[in-house]
Design a protein around this nucleic acid. Structure first.
Lengths: 107, 107
DNA sequence: CTATCATTTAACTATATGGTTGAACGAACG
DNA sequence: CGTTCGTTCAACCATATAGTTAAATGATAG
Protein backbone atom coordinates (compact mmCIF):
# COMPACT_ATOMS: atom_id res chain seq x y z
CA UNK A 1 0.00 0.00 0.00
CA UNK A 2 1.47 3.30 -1.09
CA UNK A 3 0.96 6.24 1.23
CA UNK A 4 0.63 9.49 -0.65
CA UNK A 5 2.07 11.53 2.15
CA UNK A 6 1.53 15.09 1.03
CA UNK A 7 -1.99 14.45 -0.09
CA UNK A 8 -2.95 12.80 3.17
CA UNK A 9 -1.30 15.62 5.12
CA UNK A 10 -3.45 18.19 3.36
CA UNK A 11 -6.61 16.11 3.41
CA UNK A 12 -6.47 15.32 7.11
CA UNK A 13 -5.34 18.83 8.02
CA UNK A 14 -8.36 20.16 6.14
CA UNK A 15 -10.70 17.81 7.95
CA UNK A 16 -9.26 18.78 11.33
CA UNK A 17 -11.13 22.08 11.29
CA UNK A 18 -14.87 22.04 12.14
CA UNK A 19 -15.66 25.04 9.94
CA UNK A 20 -14.12 23.28 6.97
CA UNK A 21 -15.94 20.04 7.72
CA UNK A 22 -19.13 22.06 7.82
CA UNK A 23 -18.37 23.78 4.53
CA UNK A 24 -17.75 20.37 3.01
CA UNK A 25 -21.08 19.09 4.29
CA UNK A 26 -22.94 22.06 2.85
CA UNK A 27 -21.19 21.86 -0.48
CA UNK A 28 -21.98 18.15 -0.62
CA UNK A 29 -25.69 19.04 -0.77
CA UNK A 30 -25.10 21.18 -3.84
CA UNK A 31 -22.85 23.71 -5.49
CA UNK A 32 -22.51 27.00 -3.62
CA UNK A 33 -20.71 30.26 -4.24
CA UNK A 34 -18.10 31.50 -1.78
CA UNK A 35 -20.49 34.13 -0.41
CA UNK A 36 -23.31 31.59 -0.18
CA UNK A 37 -20.96 29.62 2.03
CA UNK A 38 -19.97 32.67 4.05
CA UNK A 39 -23.63 33.25 4.92
CA UNK A 40 -24.19 31.24 8.03
CA UNK A 41 -20.81 31.74 9.61
CA UNK A 42 -20.00 34.50 12.04
CA UNK A 43 -16.72 35.11 10.29
CA UNK A 44 -15.38 37.45 7.62
CA UNK A 45 -15.71 36.56 3.97
CA UNK A 46 -11.92 36.61 3.73
CA UNK A 47 -11.67 33.95 6.42
CA UNK A 48 -14.14 31.74 4.57
CA UNK A 49 -12.26 32.33 1.34
CA UNK A 50 -9.13 31.06 3.07
CA UNK A 51 -10.90 27.96 4.33
CA UNK A 52 -12.16 27.28 0.84
CA UNK A 53 -8.62 27.63 -0.47
CA UNK A 54 -7.37 25.11 2.07
CA UNK A 55 -10.06 22.69 0.93
CA UNK A 56 -9.12 23.35 -2.67
CA UNK A 57 -5.42 22.72 -2.07
CA UNK A 58 -6.38 19.39 -0.52
CA UNK A 59 -8.48 18.71 -3.62
CA UNK A 60 -11.55 18.22 -1.48
CA UNK A 61 -13.44 20.77 -3.54
CA UNK A 62 -13.27 22.30 -6.99
CA UNK A 63 -13.84 25.96 -7.77
CA UNK A 64 -15.06 27.23 -11.09
CA UNK A 65 -15.92 30.75 -12.09
CA UNK A 66 -19.45 31.56 -13.09
CA UNK A 67 -19.57 35.24 -13.92
CA UNK A 68 -18.74 37.18 -10.80
CA UNK A 69 -19.14 34.16 -8.59
CA UNK A 70 -16.79 31.37 -7.69
CA UNK A 71 -18.83 28.20 -7.52
CA UNK A 72 -17.64 25.49 -5.16
CA UNK A 73 -18.31 21.79 -5.72
CA UNK A 74 -17.40 18.75 -3.65
CA UNK A 75 -14.63 16.61 -5.13
CA UNK A 76 -15.09 13.24 -3.46
CA UNK A 77 -11.85 11.64 -4.68
CA UNK A 78 -9.75 13.10 -1.90
CA UNK A 79 -12.19 11.81 0.69
CA UNK A 80 -11.81 8.44 -0.97
CA UNK A 81 -8.05 8.66 -0.37
CA UNK A 82 -8.71 9.26 3.31
CA UNK A 83 -11.04 6.29 3.28
CA UNK A 84 -8.43 4.11 1.62
CA UNK A 85 -5.98 5.13 4.30
CA UNK A 86 -8.40 3.99 7.00
CA UNK A 87 -9.06 0.79 5.07
CA UNK A 88 -5.82 -0.73 6.36
CA UNK A 89 -7.11 -0.41 9.92
CA UNK A 90 -10.69 -1.40 9.32
CA UNK A 91 -10.24 -5.08 10.08
CA UNK A 92 -8.76 -4.16 13.46
CA UNK A 93 -11.90 -2.62 14.82
CA UNK A 94 -14.00 -5.26 13.12
CA UNK A 95 -11.97 -7.90 14.92
CA UNK A 96 -12.66 -6.08 18.14
CA UNK A 97 -16.38 -6.14 17.41
CA UNK A 98 -16.27 -9.83 16.63
CA UNK A 99 -14.69 -10.53 19.99
CA UNK A 100 -17.42 -8.51 21.65
CA UNK A 101 -20.07 -10.44 19.72
CA UNK A 102 -18.68 -13.73 20.91
CA UNK A 103 -18.66 -12.56 24.49
CA UNK A 104 -22.29 -11.54 24.18
CA UNK A 105 -23.25 -14.91 22.67
CA UNK A 106 -21.66 -16.76 25.54
CA UNK A 107 -24.06 -15.21 28.03
CA UNK B 1 -25.69 11.91 12.38
CA UNK B 2 -24.04 13.54 15.36
CA UNK B 3 -20.64 15.09 14.76
CA UNK B 4 -18.41 14.82 17.76
CA UNK B 5 -16.51 17.94 16.91
CA UNK B 6 -13.66 17.96 19.36
CA UNK B 7 -12.90 14.30 18.87
CA UNK B 8 -12.79 14.62 15.10
CA UNK B 9 -10.62 17.72 15.39
CA UNK B 10 -8.06 15.81 17.42
CA UNK B 11 -8.28 12.64 15.36
CA UNK B 12 -7.84 14.34 12.00
CA UNK B 13 -5.17 16.71 13.32
CA UNK B 14 -3.26 13.66 14.56
CA UNK B 15 -3.54 11.95 11.21
CA UNK B 16 -2.35 15.06 9.36
CA UNK B 17 1.24 14.41 10.43
CA UNK B 18 3.23 11.74 8.56
CA UNK B 19 5.38 10.85 11.55
CA UNK B 20 2.27 10.19 13.60
CA UNK B 21 0.68 8.14 10.83
CA UNK B 22 3.86 6.11 10.74
CA UNK B 23 3.89 5.62 14.49
CA UNK B 24 0.32 4.45 14.26
CA UNK B 25 1.20 1.95 11.55
CA UNK B 26 4.06 0.55 13.58
CA UNK B 27 2.06 0.30 16.75
CA UNK B 28 -0.70 -1.45 14.80
CA UNK B 29 1.72 -4.34 14.19
CA UNK B 30 2.28 -4.76 17.92
CA UNK B 31 2.77 -2.99 21.21
CA UNK B 32 5.92 -0.86 21.41
CA UNK B 33 7.57 1.24 24.07
CA UNK B 34 8.17 4.93 23.48
CA UNK B 35 11.89 4.37 22.90
CA UNK B 36 11.17 1.42 20.59
CA UNK B 37 9.15 3.90 18.58
CA UNK B 38 11.84 6.55 18.72
CA UNK B 39 14.30 4.11 17.11
CA UNK B 40 13.86 4.60 13.43
CA UNK B 41 13.22 8.31 13.46
CA UNK B 42 15.90 10.92 13.10
CA UNK B 43 14.31 12.95 15.84
CA UNK B 44 14.78 13.41 19.57
CA UNK B 45 13.05 11.13 22.02
CA UNK B 46 11.27 14.16 23.42
CA UNK B 47 9.79 14.92 20.01
CA UNK B 48 8.53 11.35 19.68
CA UNK B 49 7.13 11.50 23.19
CA UNK B 50 5.15 14.59 22.16
CA UNK B 51 3.81 12.87 19.06
CA UNK B 52 2.74 9.92 21.17
CA UNK B 53 0.96 12.32 23.51
CA UNK B 54 -0.90 13.88 20.61
CA UNK B 55 -2.02 10.43 19.51
CA UNK B 56 -3.03 9.63 23.07
CA UNK B 57 -5.10 12.79 23.43
CA UNK B 58 -6.90 11.84 20.23
CA UNK B 59 -7.47 8.39 21.77
CA UNK B 60 -5.77 6.78 18.80
CA UNK B 61 -3.43 4.93 21.14
CA UNK B 62 -3.34 3.82 24.74
CA UNK B 63 -0.31 3.96 26.98
CA UNK B 64 0.26 1.66 29.91
CA UNK B 65 3.23 1.46 32.15
CA UNK B 66 5.24 -1.74 32.27
CA UNK B 67 8.06 -1.19 34.70
CA UNK B 68 10.27 1.55 33.40
CA UNK B 69 8.67 1.48 30.02
CA UNK B 70 5.55 3.08 28.65
CA UNK B 71 3.96 0.58 26.32
CA UNK B 72 1.92 1.97 23.45
CA UNK B 73 -1.01 0.11 21.87
CA UNK B 74 -3.28 1.02 19.00
CA UNK B 75 -6.80 1.99 20.04
CA UNK B 76 -8.85 1.48 16.89
CA UNK B 77 -12.08 3.11 18.11
CA UNK B 78 -10.98 6.62 17.22
CA UNK B 79 -10.09 5.50 13.71
CA UNK B 80 -13.57 4.05 13.55
CA UNK B 81 -14.96 7.52 14.35
CA UNK B 82 -13.01 8.93 11.44
CA UNK B 83 -14.37 6.16 9.27
CA UNK B 84 -17.92 6.90 10.40
CA UNK B 85 -17.38 10.52 9.48
CA UNK B 86 -16.34 9.52 5.96
CA UNK B 87 -19.29 7.14 5.74
CA UNK B 88 -21.64 10.02 4.98
CA UNK B 89 -19.66 10.78 1.83
CA UNK B 90 -19.01 7.23 0.71
CA UNK B 91 -22.05 6.96 -1.54
CA UNK B 92 -20.91 10.08 -3.37
CA UNK B 93 -17.75 8.58 -4.73
CA UNK B 94 -19.50 5.26 -5.28
CA UNK B 95 -22.05 7.09 -7.38
CA UNK B 96 -19.21 8.57 -9.35
CA UNK B 97 -17.78 5.11 -9.94
CA UNK B 98 -21.13 3.79 -11.06
CA UNK B 99 -21.40 6.51 -13.64
CA UNK B 100 -17.94 5.62 -14.88
CA UNK B 101 -18.94 1.95 -15.05
CA UNK B 102 -21.93 2.75 -17.17
CA UNK B 103 -19.85 4.81 -19.53
CA UNK B 104 -17.43 1.94 -19.94
CA UNK B 105 -20.25 -0.52 -20.62
CA UNK B 106 -21.63 1.68 -23.37
CA UNK B 107 -18.47 1.37 -25.39
C1' DC C 1 19.69 4.82 48.87
C1' DT C 2 21.85 5.82 44.82
C1' DA C 3 22.74 4.87 40.12
C1' DT C 4 20.70 4.06 35.90
C1' DC C 5 17.20 3.52 32.42
C1' DA C 6 12.88 5.37 30.30
C1' DT C 7 10.21 9.11 29.73
C1' DT C 8 8.40 13.72 30.45
C1' DT C 9 8.68 18.64 31.31
C1' DA C 10 10.53 23.22 30.65
C1' DA C 11 12.19 26.76 28.05
C1' DC C 12 13.04 28.21 23.82
C1' DT C 13 12.90 28.82 18.48
C1' DA C 14 10.83 28.76 13.97
C1' DT C 15 7.04 28.23 11.27
C1' DA C 16 2.03 27.46 10.40
C1' DT C 17 -2.77 28.46 11.27
C1' DG C 18 -6.96 30.99 11.86
C1' DG C 19 -8.66 35.10 12.33
C1' DT C 20 -9.03 40.42 11.50
C1' DT C 21 -9.42 44.84 8.42
C1' DG C 22 -8.66 47.42 4.35
C1' DA C 23 -7.15 47.68 -0.25
C1' DA C 24 -7.05 45.57 -4.84
C1' DC C 25 -8.81 42.84 -8.52
C1' DG C 26 -12.06 40.65 -12.05
C1' DA C 27 -16.36 40.44 -14.19
C1' DA C 28 -20.74 42.29 -15.37
C1' DC C 29 -24.21 45.99 -15.66
C1' DG C 30 -26.02 50.35 -17.06
C1' DC D 1 -16.12 53.77 -18.70
C1' DG D 2 -17.37 54.09 -14.00
C1' DT D 3 -19.83 51.54 -10.39
C1' DT D 4 -20.95 47.73 -8.05
C1' DC D 5 -20.72 42.92 -6.71
C1' DG D 6 -17.99 38.91 -5.42
C1' DT D 7 -13.67 37.46 -4.14
C1' DT D 8 -8.83 37.58 -3.07
C1' DC D 9 -4.57 39.63 -1.34
C1' DA D 10 -1.66 42.00 2.05
C1' DA D 11 -0.41 43.10 6.40
C1' DC D 12 -0.94 42.14 10.74
C1' DC D 13 -1.99 39.65 15.36
C1' DA D 14 -2.56 35.75 18.53
C1' DT D 15 -2.11 31.15 19.24
C1' DA D 16 -0.68 26.44 18.04
C1' DT D 17 2.64 23.10 16.29
C1' DA D 18 6.93 20.69 15.58
C1' DG D 19 11.21 20.58 16.74
C1' DT D 20 15.52 21.43 19.84
C1' DT D 21 18.44 20.78 24.36
C1' DA D 22 18.78 20.38 29.20
C1' DA D 23 16.86 19.38 33.48
C1' DA D 24 13.49 16.76 36.21
C1' DT D 25 10.82 12.79 37.31
C1' DG D 26 9.52 7.63 37.82
C1' DA D 27 10.60 3.10 38.41
C1' DT D 28 13.72 -0.62 38.99
C1' DA D 29 18.07 -2.83 40.04
C1' DG D 30 22.01 -3.28 42.78
Amino acid sequence: MVERTIELNDIFASLADPTRRDILARVARGELSVSDIANGYDMSLAAISKHVNVLERAKLIIKRREGKKQMVTLAPDALMSADEYLEQYRQMWEQKFNKLDELLKEE
